[in-house]
Every structure is written in structure tokens, then in C-alpha cells.
């Protein structure tokens, strides 16, 4: 096999792409878990709903693919808001119950979508310029993967700005660090949780819209992404920077392991590696030192 540096560069670029896919899938989960401490088992199904929102917008309204991104965000954010209001908000101080309740929501959503749309896969069309490939000498990347990388960067910058440069962000961080203390200063923590949950769901929707073009739209597609999302969040430890670091690490390792061995063995090695990391850093790479509820 050829071990010159050109294919290694190719693997590096691919690792970046895999990392961006996992990170964009995990963003919503990171925010919800990092802020409210809710382990959202329905996260994969929110991704799936984003894909179906894109499919519906395209099939029934003829919306171009790029416009489906904000539509998916809004639709899934509203669905997330609904579940937060009727269910999750009663369970914030009972983490095990949220686990069970959100898992129930995930089953409901999968089965509901299957009843409405059937279990055959749906097709989302992408514009011509996104179905090609960009070649820079030795490196190749499909335009769609470049779009995913760019969207991930945009979303991260957006979240960073929201959290660290706005008044709303100060309130989110205050509630994250100490809910009671924040409340005593007049921050409406319930409203903050509600907004964060909707935001997290909306981000999952954007991810779903992107994945609808990359892979397949199926009622069960969420389960493909939820495992990687949880690994990113758990390995990262909760905060945004942790998820970024964890996904970058996992994406590159996955890509290089796949290059040297094969995809199946790469997955095995990656999981072993994560177990080892968690053995020595049980709270993740960037564990939140603030008070955990």
C-alpha cells in the first residue's frame, strides 16, 4: 500500500468532514445536555424530523434545498418546544425520568412518522452544484461535505455568539452554573430551559436536513446518528468546546483507522479508544467544573 503523504492528507480532510458531520449531529444534544442536564434520547428522532421537514418542504412546496435548512430549524424547534412544554419541563429535577420519557418520545416519533409517511425511504433533491466534487490537486471533497463543514462552522460561531456575546447568553450561562442563584437574581430559569430546548431541537433539525442529502430519509434514520452524538457529548464532557474537541478527535481517528485498516475495524478501535479515554477522564475531556444538578 502507498503510504506517501498524499493519501494521508486525503484522510486528514476526510476526518475533518466526518468530524463536522458528527459535530453538527451532536450540537443540539450538547446544548440541551450542557444547559439543562437533560439527556435527550429523542435527539436522533429530532434529526429525523428535520430530514422529513426538508422532504415535505421540497415535495409539497417546491422549496430549494438551501432554504429547507431554516425551515427544518423552525419546524423541529417548534416540535421541541411542544414536547418541552407538555413533558420535559415537569422532569428537570428527575434525570432518570427524562431519560425514560424522552426515549418514549423517540419511539412515538419514529412510529408516528412511519404511520404518516410509510417506512419506504424518501428522496430529497440537492441542487446541481452540491452533487459534485471539489478537487484541489491531491485533495478531494464533495461539495455537500464542504457545505456541512461550513454550516458547522456557522452554527458554532452563532452559538458562541449567542452564549458569550448576548444578554440572553449570560442568563443561559448563569442558569447552567447555578440555577437557584440565577433565579434569585431574577432570571426566569424555566424560560431559559424552554428556549434552550427549542434551540437544541432546531439544531438537530438543521443536521437532519443536511443528512437527508448525504444519506437517506427513513423513520429509523435517527438511530444512526444518536450513538455518535452521545459519544461526542459524553467524550467532550458537556460544554461546546468539549464537543468540538471530541468530534475532531473522533472524526480524525475514524478516518485514519479506516485508511490503515477498514471501516468496520476502525469503528471497533474508535470505541476502544473512547472507553480508554473515559476510564481516565470519566467526566469527559472538558468536564464542567460548575455545580451539577
Amino acid at each position: 500500500m502507498d503510504y506517501s503523504w498524499a493519501p494521508l492528507m486525503g484522510s486528514l480532510v476526510l476526518g475533518l468532514s466526518i468530524a463536522s458531520i458528527w459535530l453538527v449531529a451532536a450540537l443540539g444534544l450538547t446544548i440541551i445536555y450542557g444547559t439543562a442536564g437533560v439527556i435527550n434520547m429523542a435527539h436522533g428522532e429530532f434529526i429525523m424530523l428535520g430530514a422529513y421537514a426538508a422532504y415535505c418542504a421540497q415535495a409539497y412546496l417546491g422549496t430549494p434545498f438551501l432554504l429547507c435548512l431554516p425551515i427544518s430549524f423552525v419546524v423541529v424547534a417548534l416540535i421541541g418546544l411542544f414536547f418541552e412544554r407538555v413533558l420535559i419541563r415537569y422532569l428537570y429535577h428527575r434525570p432518570l425520568d427524562t431519560l425514560l420519557a424522552t426515549w418514549g418520545v423517540s419511539l412515538m416519533l419514529t412510529q408516528g412518522v412511519r404511520m404518516i409517511f410509510g417506512s419506504s425511504p424518501k428522496y430529497v433533491q440537492v441542487p446541481e452544484f452540491l452533487s459534485g466534487n471539489v478537487s484541489l490537486g491531491i485533495m478531494n471533497m464533495s461539495s455537500l461535505r464542504i457545505l456541512i463543514v461550513l454550516m458547522t462552522v456557522v452554527l458554532i460561531v452563532g452559538i458562541w455568539y449567542l452564549f458569550y456575546r448576548t444578554y440572553f447568553g449570560i442568563k443561559i450561562r448563569a442558569v447552567t452554573q447555578n440555577r437557584e442563584m440565577a433565579a434569585s437574581f431574577g432570571v426566569n430559569s424555566e424560560r431559559i430551559y424552554m428556549c434552550t430546548f427549542a434551540l437544541g431541537a432546531g439544531l438537530a433539525g438543521v443536521a437532519g436536513c443536511l443528512f437527508s442529502a448525504l444519506a437517506i430519509v427513513l423513520p429509523t434514520m435517527g438511530s444512526n446518528y444518536v450513538v455518535e452524538s452521545f459519544l461526542v457529548v459524553v467524550t467532550g464532557g458537556g460544554p461546546l468546546v468539549g464537543s468540538i474537541a471530541a468530534s475532531a478527535m473522533m472524526g480524525e481517528f475514524k478516518s485514519f483507522f479506516s485508511y490503515f485498516f477498514n471501516s468496520t475495524f476502525a469503528q471497533f478501535l474508535l470505541f476502544v479508544l473512547i472507553v480508554i479515554v473515559l476510564r481516565f477522564r470519566p467526566n469527559g475531556l472538558f468536564a464542567n467544573t460548575a455545580v451539577r444538578r
Binding site: S17, I18, N140, N224, S255, S258, Y259, S263, T264
Partner: peptide, 12 residues
């Protein structure tokens, strides 16, 4: 892996 949708390294 069955169900996987990541073909980047195979295509490389």
C-alpha cells in the same frame, strides 16, 4: 458496518 452511511474512506 450494516446501516452505516459514511463512505468517505471507502471512496478514497
Amino acid at each position: 458496518p450494516l446501516g452505516s452511511s459514511e463512505f468517505g474512506s471507502v471512496l478514497n
